[in-house]
Design a protein around this nucleic acid. Structure first.
Length: 876
DNA sequence: CTTGGCTGCTTCC
DNA sequence: TGGAAGCAG
C-alpha cells in the first residue's frame, strides 16, 4: 500500500485526465498568521532559528515579497528591505528546528483535499496532486442531463494560460458548442486523429476541473483558513507548472492549445525535475534554453544525448505529455530528521554523539507515534546517515538495519551501533570517549512501513503514548513541557472540531434531503425530479449559507422553497448580497442560524408525520441528533462563515475562535497590500463529490472511505471512553469492531447485523439515486427519435437526429451537441429566475469589499462579461 | 563555525 | 538491497 512505486497511465489517456495541483501560498507564513492573527496582512517571514544575522529565511509572505524579501536571505537583510517585517522563528525543540506545526497544518489541509478524490498524492507538506478525472467525468455527464451546471462564481480568481481572462476562455468553449468543428482543421494538423475526441473535450473538461478546483480551494479556506493556488491541467507536470503562474490565491488552467506557445518561451528549468543538474545537462547537451526547443530533436536524438529513459520522458514532456499517474499517498514513505554540526560544532565525543542521537531519535519517535495513530503502520527499517571528518575529508555514509521496536532508546542505541560498527576506528586510541572521526552531520530516518495489526486500536494507543510522552519530556526539559502538552491537546482538539464540523455538515445535508422529500411530495412536480441531485448539492452549501443567496442557476419549486426559507431570515438583506460574508450584519447571522435550526426541527417533524411507513427508528435518531447538534452549535461550533462576521463576542476563547475573530478584524482593516490582494468568492460545497455512508450508531453521514470511517469509529469509541468504560470492555469492543471491520470494510459500526443496512444507506446517497432518475429525464428531454432522412451531404458519417433542434448531427458529436442545448436550456431558466449572480452584482449600490473589486473587474471586462453571461445566463 | 544553508524527502544505480 | 545522489522548498 505505501510502497507503490511510480505508476503511469497509458499513452491513450494523455488528454483524458484532469489533474489538480494544490499549492499552499507561503504556507509557513500562513500558519504563523493563523496562529498570531495580529500578524495578518503585515509583511512576515519565517526564519529558522539561527543567531547569525537574524536567522535563515525559509518562507516569505506576499506582503514581504512586495518589498523584495526572498528566501535564502538572512533575517537582517530582510529587515533592511522591510523595516517592519515580522520575523517568526520556527520553534526549537530539542535544540533543533521543529517543523511539526507546519506538518500538522499540512495534514489539516490534506484532510480537506482528500474529500474530493481518492487519488490524492501529497507531494510535500504544502502541495498535493488530485486526480479529479472521475468527478469531471460525472459532471460532464450531468451537464448533459441537466443535473449539473457550471457556476460562474466558481471561476473567480481563475486564469487560463494564453487568455486575457477566464471569460475569454469560457467564450471560446461556448463558441465551440455552437460550432463543434470550428477548430478541427487546427486539431487535425496538430494532433493524432485518435486523440481528437479527447482534444475536443479538453477545454470543457479543464473548465469543469477549474470549477472543482474552486470548490477545493474554497473548502480549504473555509475549513482551515488557509489560502492556496492551484493548477489545472491534464497531468502532473502541467498542473504544477500552471499552479505557479498565478499566485497567490489564484488558480490557472493550462489549456492544451496553449502548450506550444508557452513552451517556446519557457526556460527548461521551470519544469519540475529539471530545476537542477538534469535540467542543466539537458540545456548543455542540446544547446537549448527553452523547453520548446526540445521539439527539434527526435526521441532517438534525446535518448542518445541523455539516456533512454530521460530521452523518452523529455520527448513527451516537450509535447505537454506526462504519463505519471497520481499515486494515492497521504503519508510519506519515510520519516526522518537530521542536523548539521559544522565547524566547531563537530561532534567529537561519544557522550555528545549519544546526546544527539537521543535527540534525533526522540523526534523520530514522536512522529512515529503520531503516524501510527493516524495511519496504523509501523516502520520496519531504520537508516542512520552521517558525515565524518576523516583526515580532513568529509565522508558521507548511511547504514540501515531492520527495525522491530521504534522507541527512542532503541533507535538511539541502534544508530550508535551502526555508526560504531561501520567506522574503522571509532574511538581515538587510548580514549574511552573521544571519537576518532569528528561527526559533521547526523541523520536518522525510518521507513519501510508495514500496516500494524489492526487489533491495536489507534485511540487507545494514542492515550498510552501521550502519557508516555509526557513522562519523557518532563525528564528532559521542564520548560518545554507545557508547550508540548498544549500542542498535543490542540491537535486533538482540532481533530475533534473538524470531525464535528463534518458531522454537523453531514447531518444538515441529511436533514436537507428529508426536507427535500417533503417538499417534493407535496408539490408533485415531476419535472423537477431530475434535478433532485443538484438541489441537494446546492443545499449542501447550507454551511456556507450566505452563498446560497448569491446565485441559484436553476429554478425549481425546491429552489423557491429554499429561497423562502432564506428570505424569511434575510428580510433586511438587500440586493448587494454577493458572496461577502464579512459584510453581513452579525445579528442577521445569529438570528438566521437560530431559525435554521428551528426549521430543521420542523422539517424533522414533517418527516416524521409524512413518513409513517418508514422506520421510526431513523427519525428518533434524527431527533436525538438534533438535540445533540443544538448542543454542539450552542457551544461554539458554528461554521466559520457565520462566525467570521461576528464582532468579537464573549465566547469561549478557543484558538479557533481567536482566529476567526482575527479574520473579522482583518476585514475591518485594509492595508495597502490587502487592497490589491484578490479574495475569491466561495463556491458552495457540493456533496455530490463525496459518497456517504450512514453510521448506524449515530446516523451521521460519513464519507465513504476507510480513513473517514476509522475516524468516525474513533469518535464513538472516544465517547465510550468518556463514559468511563472499563479497560476490559474497551478491548472487547475493539475485538468486535475488528471483526466487523473484517467482514465489511464499509460498515462503520460494531454491529455486524447492520452492515448490510449501512451499505444500503450508502446506496441511497445522491450519487446512486441519480442513476435511476436521469434516465427518465433524458428520455423526457429527448423526444422520440424520428427516422428522418439524413442530409445527403453528410451521408458518409453516422448521423442522428437531434430531437431538440430537428437537425442531423454526427452520432459521435451528439453528446457535445446535447451539451449545447443544455447550456441554452439553462440559460433560459436562469433568465426566468433573474439570478443575482456575481456578474450582475456590478450594479453595486453598496460598497463592495475590496475583495470583489478584482473579481468584478475581471469578469466584467467587456468580453469576459459578455461571454460568461452568454454561457451561463443569457437568453437564447 | 559558517555565511550558496539546511532539511526532508524520493529516486537512482 | 543498500547507499548515495538529487531535488525542492
Amino acid at each position: 500500500m505505501s510502497n507503490s512505486t511510480r505508476a503511469f497511465v497509458g499513452m491513450q489517456n494523455k488528454y483524458d485526465r484532469v489533474v489538480l495541483l494544490v499549492d499552499m501560498d507561503c504556507f509557513f507564513c500562513q500558519v504563523e498568521e493563523k496562529q498570531q492573527p495580529e500578524y495578518q496582512g503585515k509583511p512576515l517571514a519565517v526564519v529558522q532559528y539561527n543567531p547569525w544575522r537574524g536567522g535563515g529565511i525559509i518562507a516569505v509572505n506576499y506582503a514581504a515579497r512586495a518589498k523584495g524579501v526572498t528566501r535564502h536571505m538572512r533575517g537582517d537583510e530582510a529587515k533592511e528591505l522591510c523595516h517592519d517585517i515580522i520575523l517568526c522563528k520556527v520553534p526549537n525543540i530539542r535544540e533543533k528546528a521543529d517543523t511539526s506545526k507546519y506538518r500538522d497544518a499540512g495534514k489539516e489541509v490534506a484532510n480537506v483535499l482528500q474529500r474530493f478524490t481518492q487519488l490524492l498524492e501529497r507531494a510535500s507538506v504544502d502541495e498535493a496532486y488530485l486526480d479529479i478525472t472521475e468527478t469531471v467525468n460525472q459532471r460532464v455527464e450531468r451537464l448533459q442531463t441537466g443535473s449539473f451546471a457550471l457556476k460562474p462564481q466558481e471561476l473567480v480568481n481563475c486564469h487560463a494560460v494564453g487568455y486575457e481572462n477566464i471569460g475569454e476562455y469560457v467564450n471560446k468553449i461556448t463558441n465551440r458548442f455552437a460550432n463543434p468543428y470550428v477548430d478541427d482543421e487546427r486539431y487535425v494538423l496538430a494532433y493524432d486523429p485518435n486523440d481528437l475526441p479527447a482534444v475536443r473535450q479538453s477545454d470543457l473538461r479543464l473548465l469543469i476541473g477549474a470549477c472543482i478546483a474552486g470548490e477545493v480551494r474554497a473548502a480549504v479556506k473555509a475549513e482551515t483558513g488557509y489560502e492556496c493556488s492551484a493548477g489545472i491541467a491534464h497531468n502532473k507536470i502541467l498542473a504544477k507548472l500552471a499552479a505557479g503562474m498565478n499566485k497567490p490565491n489564484k488558480q490557472t488552467i493550462l489549456p492544451l492549445s496553449q502548450i506550444p506557445p508557452l513552451f517556446d518561451q519557457l526556460p527548461v528549468g521551470k519544469i519540475k525535475g529539471m530545476g537542477g543538474k538534469f535540467g542543466e545537462t539537458v540545456c548543455e547537451s542540446l544547446g537549448i534554453k527553452f523547453l520548446g526547443q526540445v521539439l527539434k530533436y527526435t526521441e532517438q536524438d534525446l535518448q542518445r544525448k541523455l539516456d533512454e529513459k530521460s530521452g523518452t520522458w523529455l520527448h513527451n514532456i516537450a509535447r505537454g505529455i506526462d504519463l505519471e499517474a497520481v499515486t494515492p499517498r497521504f503519508y510519506s514513505k519515510s520519516i526522518g530528521c537530521c542536523k548539521k554540526f559544522p565547524g566547531r560544532n563537530n561532534i567529537t565525543g561519544l557522550k555528545t554523539l549519544q546526546h544527539w542521537l537521543g535527540e534525533l531519535s526522540s523526534e523520530i519517535n514522536d512522529r512515529l507515534e503520531k503516524d501510527f495513530i493516524e495511519n496504523n503502520r509501523k516502520a520496519k527499517q531504520m537508516v542512520v546517515q552521517y558525515v565524518q571528518d576523516i583526515d580532513g575529508q568529509e565522508v558521507a555514509s548511511s547504514r540501515s538495519m531492520p527495525l522491530n521496536q521504534c522507541d527512542q532508546e532503541t533507535l538511539a542505541k541502534h544508530a550508535l551501533e551502526l555508526i560504531k560498527t561501520n567506522t574503522k576506528t571509532f574511538l581515538r586510541a587510548g580514549s574511552e570517549a573521544a571519537l576518532n572521526n569528528a561527526i559533521k552531520f547526523l541523520g536518522i530516518s525510518v521507513g519501510k512501513f508495514e500496516t500494524a495489526s489492526s487489533a491495536q486500536n489507534s485511540l487507545q494507543t494514542m492515550f498510552a503514548n501521550q502519557a508516555a510522552k509526557k513522562r519523557r519530556i518532563s525528564v528532559e526539559e521542564c520548560v518545554e513541557k507545557p508547550v508540548v502538552e498544549q500542542k498535543a491537546k490542540q491537535t486533538e482538539e482540532g481533530k475533534m472540531k473538524s470531525f464535528f464540523a463534518n458531522y454537523l455538515q453531514a447531518n444538515k445535508e441529511e436533514n436537507v434531503k428529508e426536507k427535500l422529500k417533503v417538499v417534493e411530495k407535496s408539490a408533485e412536480v415531476v419535472a423537477n425530479s431530475e434535478a433532485e441531485e443538484s438541489k441537494i448539492t446546492k443545499l449542501a452549501g447550507e454551511k456556507s449559507k450566505l452563498n446560497a443567496t448569491t446565485s441559484s442557476p436553476k429554478k425549481s419549486i425546491f429552489e423557491a422553497y429554499k429561497r423562502k426559507l432564506i428570505d424569511a431570515s434575510v428580510a433586511e438583506e438587500s440586493s448587494d448580497d454577493k458572496a461577502a460574508p464579512t459584510l453581513t450584519p452579525p445579528e442577521f447571522k445569529e438570528s438566521f442560524f437560530a431559525k435554521y435550526l428551528q426549521q430543521q426541527k420542523e422539517v424533522k417533524k414533517d418527516v416524521q408525520q409524512s413518513n409513517k411507513t418508514s422506520e421510526s427508528n431513523d427519525s428518533t435518531e434524527m431527533h436525538d441528533l438534533a438535540a445533540e447538534l443544538d448542543e454542539i452549535e450552542s457551544s461554539n461550533n458554528n461554521p466559520q462563515q457565520e462566525v467570521e462576521a461576528l464582532p468579537p463576542p464573549e465566547q469561549p476563547s478557543t484558538s479557533k475562535r481567536k482566529f476567526e475573530q482575527a479574520k473579522a478584524n482583518e476585514a475591518a482593516t485594509t492595508s495597502n497590500f490587502t487592497s490589491t490582494y484578490a479574495e475569491y468568492a466561495q463556491p458552495e460545497l457540493r456533496a455530490d463529490l463525496i459518497s456517504f455512508v450512514k453510521c448506524d450508531e449515530c446516523g451521521a453521514q460519513i464519507p465513504d472511505d476507510v480513513k473517514a470511517l476509522q475516524t468516525h469509529r474513533d469518535h464513538h469509541f472516544a465517547q465510550q471512553l468518556n463514559r468511563q468504560l472499563r479497560a476490559e470492555q474497551r478491548e472487547d469492543a475493539q475485538r468486535s469492531r475488528l471483526n466487523a471491520t473484517n467482514t465489511s470494510a464499509a460498515s462503520p459500526t460494531t454491529k455486524p447485523v447492520h452492515a448490510k443496512k449501512a451499505k444500503k444507506a450508502s446506496g441511497a446517497t445522491p450519487t446512486t439515486t441519480s442513476a435511476a432518475k436521469p434516465v427518465n429525464s433524458i428520455t423526457k428531454f429527448l423526444a422520440p427519435k424520428q427516422p428522418l432522412e439524413p442530409p445527403p451531404s453528410c451521408s458518409n458519417a453516422t448521423m442522428e437526429l437531434c430531437a431538440e433542434c430537428k437537425t442531423y448531427v454526427k452520432s459521435v458529436d451528439m453528446p457535445e451537441h446535447l451539451d449545447f442545448h443544455m447550456a441554452k436550456k439553462l440559460q433560459r431558466e436562469l433568465n426566468q429566475l433573474e439570478v443575482r449572480t456575481i456578474i450582475t452584482s456590478t450594479n453595486k449600490k453598496a460598497t463592495p469589499p475590496p475583495a470583489n473589486t478584482k473579481l468584478n473587474s475581471t469578469l466584467n471586462s467587456s468580453s469576459a462579461n459578455h461571454s460568461i453571461t452568454k454561457f451561463f445566463t443569457q437568453i437564447n
